[in-house]
Design a protein around this nucleic acid. Sequence first.
DNA 1: ATAAAATACTACGACAGACATAGTACGACA
DNA 2: TGTCGTACTATGTCTGTCGTAGTATTTTAT
Lengths: 112, 112
Amino acid sequence: MEISSDVIRGYNDTMILFTLLERPSYGYEISKEIKRLSDEKYIIKETTLYSAFTRMEKNGFVESYTAEPDTTGNGKKRTYYRITESGRAYYREKCEEWSLTKDVIEKFVGQA
Amino acid sequence: MEISSDVIRGYNDTMILFTLLERPSYGYEISKEIKRLSDEKYIIKETTLYSAFTRMEKNGFVESYTAEPDTTGNGKKRTYYRITESGRAYYREKCEEWSLTKDVIEKFVGQA
DNA sequence: ATAAAATACTACGACAGACATAGTACGACA
DNA sequence: TGTCGTACTATGTCTGTCGTAGTATTTTAT
């Protein structure tokens, strides 16, 4: 079974921000990280990911900068994204919202 | 804090179907029921509700019939909705999907 | 008796996020 | 030399939600 994008919608940004909490990263790495963290259960689509970057940068949740790959010198030049203070605040808000939302939905699914 | 409609999106149908598991109902009653069950935390918009009916009827998840109000004879004529077998199957599926989705999202919110 | 609120909808259009599809371009590797 | 992996951008479509508005009947308050 696949998890529906309609549910994830609105949490893609949160998931991306989560991967940026410790250090900046870039598209491809973030998508791998989301896949890994979700135990291969969720694979974010490229277009979803990159349009999230655009949106979040406009909203001031992330900042981008172009840089050569890390110390090993592998790979091509990339666009890195760094979470901002406002992005951290937004992330915390979404975490709170999640617990509210979860409680509501759970009243309607399988009596659990 | 309000719960975001982007998260509920894709679970509105599930919530509505839940309220129909025991007996048929109609728009206004269902909206009150959702409000009550969610401890007043979620109030479904009228347009969202009625467009869900249309969609779900097209999908064969509910059947509608017009009827006079209940035995007390109060109120106006209403359109009642009854859940179908296919609707029940869909509901069960969404319940399973929910537990998957929840597990995934929880890996990304607040370390929990 | 009359006004206001609750009930029970329908119509229409806008919007945002996800996604399909496609294409570019560079590097690594065989 | 060609395929795969990496690292994106562009464009347009779709779906569900929601804002706004309007209609009409019934119940409740004054």
